[in-house]
Design a protein around this nucleic acid. Sequence first.
DNA 1: GCAACACACGGAAACGTTTCCGACACGTAG
DNA 2: CTACGTGTCGGAAACGTTTCCGTGTGTTGC
Lengths: 346, 346
Amino acid sequence: MAATIHDVARKAGVGIGTVSSVLNNSRPVNEKTRQKVLTAVAELDFVPNPSGRRLSLGKTHTIGVVIPYFTIASQIERLRGVMSVIAGSDYDINLFTVETIPQRNKILQTVPRRGRIDGLLIFSLNPTEADLRRIHRHNIPTVLVEASHPDLPHLFLDDVAAAQTAVEHLIQLGHRKIGYISDYLDDPFGSFFSRNRYQGYCQALKAADLPIQPEYHRQGCFGREDGREKTFELLNLPNPPTAIFTYSDDIALAVLEVARDLNLNVPGDLSVVGYDDIELANFAQLTTVRQYLFESGIQGVELLLDTIEHPDAPPSHHQLPTELIVRRTTASPSQSNDAVSLKNRD
Amino acid sequence: MAATIHDVARKAGVGIGTVSSVLNNSRPVNEKTRQKVLTAVAELDFVPNPSGRRLSLGKTHTIGVVIPYFTIASQIERLRGVMSVIAGSDYDINLFTVETIPQRNKILQTVPRRGRIDGLLIFSLNPTEADLRRIHRHNIPTVLVEASHPDLPHLFLDDVAAAQTAVEHLIQLGHRKIGYISDYLDDPFGSFFSRNRYQGYCQALKAADLPIQPEYHRQGCFGREDGREKTFELLNLPNPPTAIFTYSDDIALAVLEVARDLNLNVPGDLSVVGYDDIELANFAQLTTVRQYLFESGIQGVELLLDTIEHPDAPPSHHQLPTELIVRRTTASPSQSNDAVSLKNRD
DNA sequence: GCAACACACGGAAACGTTTCCGACACGTAG
DNA sequence: CTACGTGTCGGAAACGTTTCCGTGTGTTGC
């Protein structure tokens, strides 16, 4: 159907090697011959078949990107960063989203293989030791973003410190009853950020001599709906928290939704702090921990492209900055007791 | 480095054809031989090289997805629908995001080629006639979503009717001065939805004997920031509209942002209607036109997979439903004049 | 005991590239 | 006239699969 390099060679009256040379500038070709080849290429609308190319070169010119939590806005923002770099390169992107544990395992088992991709970018997922052995055995350049492993190049956040800063902000405002909504601490996908942020939360409380009350910590919150549920649980406690810190902006927005449904005044009755600083955090005027998401996508691919070019360089680890952005969902807790505060709006 | 089918054959003491047969179940193999092959495969951790496979089969098992407006939440939602189907198939996804016109052209020129992908899914982009010729010449199964062309299978919306319904809702509430913020009507990417929605807007006005005032129509609005700007322009008119309809929820959220910044009461001073019903529309209590985004992604790939299997079936065209979701950003215009309404909140 | 047949399997050919060895033509120096 | 370099190019080999033709072995029926 489609023209092959042999068709071009025949039409131009040259050998296939010459056609290849012209197309790849891989060796000098007489100007006249070059023109003959180029017109033949144009007439046949010839484009080299990538499968043949890949087989011959042993390179796929494709990068795999593995993304869990694809519902979450922060991941999209990272992906956008990745795409912005890829657009200017000659690499293709293979997208793998992971929604379930079996899927996670299947992807990590089948994707990192020579001949499938040239490099792998993994977001927010810590590979197991078995995964790692496979990655090394197949010798696939791999970069982690928002995750870490000593043997792999990665970009990581200081989640502990960032969470601690966020909770300290609440404590400084006068909050003593602070809830935290997290993902499962033993994240089934093998992410640690939720656990780290929990640790930062605990450290802040400890440093202020506040007790760590287990009922103020809700874990296992995945989507928006879970977020609403956990918020209800927290606010229905006999002695509910006056502030809630969440492990993502998406969840924080769910908290705000519930607060509105309950006619709770934010920040008067309830302060809320998120994490990520997605675009909508600004819309909702959410106080949150900013991480530079788009930028992290860019740095992630660039690190990967580097690793592909220099596979033997020692794995480099870069810390991504974070910053507490104070907007309008945090304030000092009102003096009124909780029963009243449930009614004092509208 | 990695094991090939020859290594497996040698180790198992069989021929390569037998190994291939075992792996693909392509012909009966004696049980004993089969076991020998399988253990050799396991010991060598052999996985067939996709490039070799593709070259031999003439299939890539890859689907290209072309997505413009990747910032917009609705596109992500569609992509999620696509991924949910792909996860259960043995296809890979090649992602192409388009941000600029040259990029759009480059992608549409280089992506639809045999040997690169088996099928192409295009979101919200109308191919030019030249694009179409190329697609047909290379004989690449292609499906459009939120776009249309008689020669290609596609999923389309009745944007005209949906927009008309939205504007009629505003008229019924008593609005007479209704603004519309759209993308460029001559969309540089070749999308028609913006133009169609404008037409629906005009039809609704006409049907109610309302004048179509050019200054109420702002076009060329791409991102959130543009949205804010266009909103300012509309609200700063000597005789500003009392309601604003936008071509996407993302822009509608920008309108809400501006309204809040100006201390305008929504919906008291200003009604707002969006389009898409992204997840955050519910959070913002935005009245909007719902399209079933996730579902449209699912249907899009399924149609494509169908087309790949039956390339000679006539292109089928499916209409996607829409629905007006009335929430809390629309109400009857207040009686007070505009100067007052700018102050009557808080 | 032999023809016919089923079953099982080996390996050459083909897919479309790139690479690289070798060859040819021409000019130049000795 | 010869030897050698230079510029140019052709096409076999290799990349790792799948397919399919052909062959060998054992079984069945007469």
